[in-house]
Simulated assay, not measured.
Amino acid sequence: MFTGIVQGLAQVAAITEKPGLTSFTLAFPEGFCEGLEIGASVACDGVCLTVTALKGPNAADFDVMQQSLKLTTLAGLKQGSALNVERAAKEGAEIGGHPLSGHVDFMATLESVRKPENNHVMRIRVPAPWMRYIFAKGYIAINGASLTVAEAGREPGGAGWFEVWLIPETLRMTTFGDKQPGDALNIEIERSTQVFVDTVRDAIDERLGPLLPALEKLLAASGQSLDALAEPVKLPGRS
Rank of each mutant, 00 (worst) to 15 (best):
F106I: 07
R207T: 08
K234G: 01
D63A: 09
G4A: 02
I5P: 09
K217C: 07
L218P: 00
S112P: 00
V197Q: 06
A214L: 13
A141V: 03
K18W: 04
G144L: 05
A221E: 15
R154G: 03
T72C: 02
S239R: 15
P168D: 03
N58E: 14
A53G: 10
E17C: 01
G237H: 08
A220I: 09
K179C: 01
T3C: 02
A128N: 08
T174Y: 01
K70S: 09
P19H: 07
T25Y: 06
Q7D: 07
T52S: 14
S101W: 06
L219P: 01
D198G: 02
W161G: 05
V85E: 02
L74T: 04
S222C: 14
L110T: 01
V195T: 13
E216Q: 15
A128R: 14
L83I: 09
K78T: 08
N143T: 00
V12I: 11
T16V: 14
L71K: 15
G35V: 10
I189E: 10
N143I: 01
R172M: 10
R114T: 00
G144T: 04
T199E: 10
G46Y: 03
T22K: 15
W161S: 15
L49Y: 04
D227S: 15
F62T: 07
A128K: 15
I204K: 12
F32R: 10
D202Y: 13
L69I: 04
I5L: 14
M107A: 08
D105H: 07
K90P: 00
Q11T: 15
A60S: 07
C48Y: 02
Q79P: 00
T16Y: 09
T3R: 05
S101F: 06
